[in-house]
């Protein structure tokens, strides 16, 4: 598998090789890798990328998934447009 050709985060265009390089540089928790590479900061908010990256990180470092600082889930459940918070119920 060519890690330069595997996309692990589609929202922010991050490659598997980016993740492997971050781990090599010493970043060993998901919260820090998130802020380094922007994985989990796009519109999926980590639904797609973080489980994949967690597995890569666990496999590479030998750490358990619960030792990886898996990022908190925050609202909203799905991206939502601001107009729904300002509408009077008739628009949008």
């Amino acid at each position: 598998m060519d890690s330069e050709k595997v996309i692990v985060c589609r929202c922010e265009d991050v490659l598997l090789s980016d993740v492997l390089r971050a781990i090599e540089r010493g970043y060993r928790d998901l919260e820090s890798i998130k802020r380094l590479l922007r994985v989990g900061m796009g519109s999926c908010q980590g639904r797609h990328c973080l489980p994949i990256i967690a597995r890569v990180l666990a496999k590479t470092t030998g750490l358990r998934i619960d030792e990886l600082n898996y990022p908190s889930s925050r609202p909203p459940l799905m991206p939502i447009q601001l107009k729904y918070f300002v509408s009077d119920g008739n628009e949008g």
Partner: peptide
């Protein structure tokens, strides 16, 4: 927050909110 900033920037009504902390 949405009310204040969509008043100044009406186009922001269409913007998607990703995360609230």
């Amino acid at each position: 927050a949405s009310k204040v900033w969509t008043k100044y920037f009406p186009w922001m009504k269409e913007a998607y909110l990703l995360r609230y902390w």
